[in-house]
Amino acid sequence: MSRPLLETVDLKTHYGGTRSLLSKPKPLVRAVDGVSLKIQPGEVLGLVGESGCGKSTIAKTLLGLERETEGAILLDGFDVGGRDPAEARKVRSDIQYVHQDPGAALDPWWRVGDTLHETLKIHGVSDRAERQARILEMLNAVGLNEGFLRRYPHELSGGQQRRIGLARTLSLRPRMVILDEPTSGLDLSVQATVLKLMLDLRATYDLTYLFISHDLSVVERLCDRVAIMYLGRIVEIGSADQVFSAPAHPYTRALLESAPTLTRQDSGQVIQGDPPSPTRRPEGCAFHPRCPMAQADCRQSVPQLAEVSDSQSVACPYAMPGQVRPAEAFAS
């Protein structure tokens, strides 16, 4: 395999837990707790998990908006970790971010065109003509015309806002783009065109995507590899085919079983309980209180990711790799 574009080694981002003189002590939140990822150039890696699992914190940490507590971040093999936000953004300008709600990510008082110009200005493109050229190129690439530059954010539809968000980020010519829930809040009929656009852009501009989502069906269609997160740790990672057809971790299986399909799912165990809060993380395997196959030692030791096949690793000693996807078993 070639050298990964981005690599994290045992990345940890914790909040709070410190006592200061003036403020109340805040509980320690281990939002990201030991994540090691390798993202190859050109691939689409999906990062899936429920709310509070730390997927947004990973994005912020990779961008440099949050400083990691421990661990290393390597971009192209160079260590780019351990920096303050301002410096980290400079060093990691190859990594850019498309916001979950690109409409809200635009200043409501600014015309779209001004915002696009500003984004380039921030990155030191001082020549107005060059900025305009780049913006028009990107607008064209996302399927919008020049007229949109004069509009205000509230004059755009949900799909148009996503396109502007993509144009804004891609005008910076990043190599890697973190897409945070890029389809949430979009209607199914609009979602498709946005997803297609993202795949086209990836091909045109040779991009690498980290695709954060809770929507399994979208991840399944778009991603080459997928990582499943639960309470700050990756519990399963592998090629999308493998993970979706033969989920090994009980949590992955629960997620897949819970996604509503077009046939009524009467059989099958629905996983009980809610994801616990990261401030009250269970000892041992964080999933054990909800796990149907938890054993005594799951309460004590934290399972590590281990390969179960050449393209799939699971953090569960009782994982059953190669099992047929439950929904399909039911459908047949």
């Binding site: 953004r89 990510a105 635009l106 990155h123």
Partner: peptide
């Protein structure tokens, strides 16, 4: 608000 967060993300001072 999100637009400020986004600006920080793009590295605005």
């Amino acid at each position: 608000s999100l637009f400020v967060e986004a600006l920080e993300g793009y590295g605005a001072s």
